[in-house]
Structure formats: C-alpha cells, structure tokens
Design a protein around this nucleic acid. Structure first.
Lengths: 300, 300
DNA sequence: ATGTAGACTTCGGTCGACC
DNA sequence: AGGTCGACCGAAGTCTACA
C-alpha cells in the first residue's frame, strides 16, 4: 500500500496535469510537495476534492494505490461470485467451511453472503441459519440500502417465500427495492448498473409469483418489465428483460410469440460458448411446461 | 456536500455495523464519535481503511456523500456520453461552443474529450485542433494509462490513420493498450469493465486495417478476438466480439456462416427497441459489400 | 512550474473519566 | 454498545523565501 500522496503524484503525471490544476484552492503549493513526496498525510475531505480535480474515480485510485490490486474483501467477493457463477458449489461450500468462523469481521460478512448464496440456490426448504435470519431482519428494518444490500435482496425473496414466519409482503419489499434503486440512477446514466439488479429482482419475484400460483400478481409484473425499457440498459439487462416479457406472453399473452422469442434468445446465446450465464435454457424449459398447464387449467 | 464523518456514520448504520467493527485499529473510540458527528476531519489513509471496513466502494461513498449525486465532472461526462450515444450531435456541438473556453480545468478537459468525439465520428479528414494534438502527444509519451486514457485510445486510431504526421504504428499502440488493460484485470473479475474497451478497440483497429486494405494485419486480428473469449465478458462485449468474428469470416473465412451470424445478431437486436447502441446494421451493410469486393479482387 | 526549509498555527487524534 | 468532556501531543497545513 503506497502513501496516498505518492499515488496522487503518479496519477497526476499520467494525466499530464500541473500541481496548480490539481491542488489550487485545496492545499498550499509547499504542502502539495510534502504531500506528494509521502512525508505527510492529508485530510479526507481535501483528498476527495483532489480526486475530483484528477478526474479519477475513488475506486480506481484505491486500486492503483493498492498496487493494481483489489482490496482484500473485494478479492474475496469476486472469487466467491466467480465460484457461484460457474456453479462450483462444492468449492464454494469448502470456502465457507474454511472461513465461517473467522475472527476477521469482513471475512465473516462474506461468509454470511456465501451461506445465502448456497442456501438459496435451489428453492427447496433449507434450515434458516442465524446469520441469514439476522441479515433478513436487518434489511427489513433499514429503509435505506447501499448497492450491496440491493444486490442481496433478490436472493432473499425465495427465503421469504419458503419461510412463512417472515410476515412481509413481497410487494412491500418491491416498493422498497424500487425506492432504493431510484437513488442510484442519475439523469443520463446508471453508474452503479443498478438497473441490472432491478431486472434480476423483478425476474425472481415474477418466478416466485408463478411458482406460488399468484397469477394476478404475476400478470401485473408486465408493466414493471415494460417500464424498464425507458431506462438505459446494457445487453445483459435487456436480454433478461426480454426473457421475462416472453415468459409473461407464455402465460397471459400470445403463447406462440413468447415461445418464438425464447427460442430466439436461446439460439442467439448458442453463438457464444461461455460458462457464465443464468440458466436461460432451464428457465425456458420449466416455463414452457408450466404455462401450458396453467392455460389448460383455465380452460376447464 | 456532507462532512465525511457524518456520511460514514450514515453508511455504518445502514450496514448495521458497530463502531468497533469499523474503527478498531484505525482510530480511538472517543475520536470516532467526534469524527462521526462532523466535528473533525480525518486522515485520508485512515479514511481508506475505514471504507474497507465498511465494505463499500469509495465511489459509492462519494456518491452518497454528495447527496446521491455524481460529482460535477461525472455529471458532465455522462451527459456528453449520452448525447453522443443517442447521436445528438448538434446538441453536443452546442455544448462544446458553450464550454470550450471555460476557465474551469475540469470543464476544459471534458471539452477536449467532446471535441475528439465530434471530430472522430466520421472517418473523413478533419482539421487537427491543438487540443487533440496535445492529447495525442501526451498519450503517446505516457507508458501508463488510467481507465480514462484507455477509453479514449479507440477514438484516436482514426486520427492517427488519417494524419500521416503521427509516425506511430497501430501495432505499437495495440501493444501498449493490451499492457495497460492487463493492469485492470484481476484473477476472477473485470472490475472496471476494461474488456469492453478492449473489444471496442480491437473492432476499431480491425475496421481501420480493412479500410486501408492492410489485409494481412486484418487477418491476424482473429486471434485477438478469439483470445478475448477466455476472459469474463458481459453480453455487450460478447455481442461485439461475435460481430467482429463474423466480419472476419466475411473476408477471410466462410462467407456464408459469417453472414448468417450477422443476420442473427441483427434479428436478435430487433427484439429490443432501443436508441442506445453501436450501429450494427450500418457496419454489417458496409462489410458485406466490401468483403465481396475483396474476394472478387483476389480471384483475378 | 516544481522542490526544499524553517517558523508558526490549527486541528487530528489519544487517553481517561463519566454518562 | 454509544456519546461527551478536558487535557495533552504530534502531525497537518500555511507562509515566506530561496533555489
């Protein structure tokens, strides 16, 4: 870990900026030199102003300051996410065993997250661990969430659905999710890629409504998916959006056109040979069958 | 702009962490209170440690600290990027006129960027402004780039190609681009979405080789696109990757299968009705014609 | 435009006590 | 577990001057 000032100079030179451009109005010229040489630390608020003047994101600064490496906790998080996304569940379980009793607070937080990942992967009943219960109550009691909480909520929907002891309506959570996501959207952009999380959340909720045969609620989800279209979405989010709209058609709209779009998505996905993805084929298979059942039941 | 400590408390409470969990080993218990109440500032290096303990990204901290708004320069950047991506060039030109002579350093940097956006949009000749020249020389003289520089390089390739006064080989820039991108890739993830920039860069270079009839160089690009496949790519990057591989097939491989993939991509894209995207249709049209010309010329 | 040095002021930061 | 107060020390930060 370099001294903050040393990294600041490094970045300033990469960007070809003068000391004046970066420090004017923040610290004095003489102190700027002592700061950059690593002799002195600096106040956090001044540091943030300097980052703005450098036109670099605070996260990138940290990354460079840490010798082009992620922080310890980010390294852990990206690793467990990688294991989860590549369906390496046994490695993930092994990781959990090794770290669940760590004395390090950050490691324990990550361990709780991994527990949740493992527990909610299949929708069947599972014992509610204390960690997960604590997480639930904390999320439900807090009105404001950070990006991390927003990312976790999707995983909690299946927990709520399978454990009736939580007397929370999914619609209440949805409202809170939407309110929190709005905080992270700006006029022209989605800097935290929060819309992807929202699409994902809607997908989980939609599936949950279908599984529990709450068809009125499921029907109403179309509007949510449509409204997403007004916002800037990347391909990941748009594909997911179209996937869920197509599933909606299977149940409540034009079955054939829904099926056609699902086939198109699967066909398109075949161009890539990748191991990273939510299981579009599996979802399609389940939903094609279940929607037909639903349609038949309505006819009778 | 809130005091740093006040925001820190806010986030700590959202996350349900105790002061001990966040400050132990960094600052004393009594000072933690003065800090959180906003009475005192704090050293930057301690602040960074605290961010780690909060398990929040520095960028998100800044965003919350700035009352859930982007910094001034980020607001400007996202706005001009939005205008560019929605092809609102007249608005962009108007923006440039209003801001090009600003005394604010950050605004001037952004103005230089906008100038480059406007200048390189069409590949025809354009007068080289002083700002763009300075940017070029600076980028070429600096070995290390930040994410911002990496994002700009793709735009500079057409400039280099049309202005023979820059005696730089594209292959030299490619090498430097690759070296810098590697810095921002970690073992399990691509936290700065740098692979998207790399795919985009390769696409620009590939097109440039084709335009200048450097077919040997263009032929060699296949390997670059293929190698990207080993890395974690999101849908945006994967679509771009497959697009360029398909164009490669048009020229040097199986014309029919290339054409088929391009048609699949366009067909798939039709599912979405969005105004945000690189112009896949236009690229396809140009390349279908040009590749046939190339193939005919080879037969003779 | 940047780097260094000394003299001086302000405030970041600890400790202990008490609520 | 927070929160607050007073006393104390060292480091952050400025100014001036000279390279």
């Amino acid at each position: 870990m370099e001294k903050v000032g040393v990294t600041t100079r490094k970045i300033r030179l990469i960007k070809g900026l003068s000391q004046k451009q970066v420090y004017a109005g923040v610290i004095s010229r003489s102190f700027a030199n002592r700061f950059e040489s690593g002799a002195n630390d600096i106040q956090a608020s001044k540091f943030l102003k300097i980052l703005d003047n450098l036109a670099i994101s605070a996260t990138e600064f940290q990354y460079i300051n840490n010798n082009y490496e992620l922080s310890q906790i980010d390294q852990m998080l990206t690793k467990v996410n990688y294991l989860y996304n590549t369906h390496a569940f046994s490695s993930l379980a092994h990781w959990l065993q090794q770290h669940k009793n760590s004395t390090n607070g950050q490691v324990r937080i990550t361990a709780g997250y991994v527990e949740l990942l493992l527990a909610t992967y299949d929708y069947r009943e599972f014992p509610l661990s204390k960690n997960i219960q604590l997480l639930m109550y904390h999320l439900l009691s807090e009105k404001n969430w950070t990006v991390q909480e927003i990312r976790i909520v999707s995983m909690l929907v299946p927990v709520i659905a399978t454990h009736k002891q939580f007397k929370v309506k999914i619609s209440t959570i949805t409202k809170r999710m939407e309110q929190n996501c709005i905080h992270y959207l700006t006029k022209y952009s989605d800097p935290f890629q929060i819309n992807n999380e929202l699409v994902n959340y809607y997908g989980v909720v939609f599936q949950n409504y279908l599984n529990s045969k709450s068809y009125t609620n499921a029907f109403a989800m179309k509007e949510k998916f449509i409204n997403l279209g007004e916002k800037p979405l990347d391909w990941d989010a748009r594909v997911a959006q179209q996937l869920w709209l197509a599933v909606w058609e299977l149940y409540f709209g034009n079955f054939k056109s829904g099926k056609l779009i699902l086939e198109k998505i699967i066909d398109f996905k075949k161009i890539f040979k990748t191991k990273f993805d939510l299981n579009i084929e599996a979802i399609t298979k389940v939903r094609l069958q279940d929607s037909q059942k639903y349609r038949n039941s309505k006819k009778e």
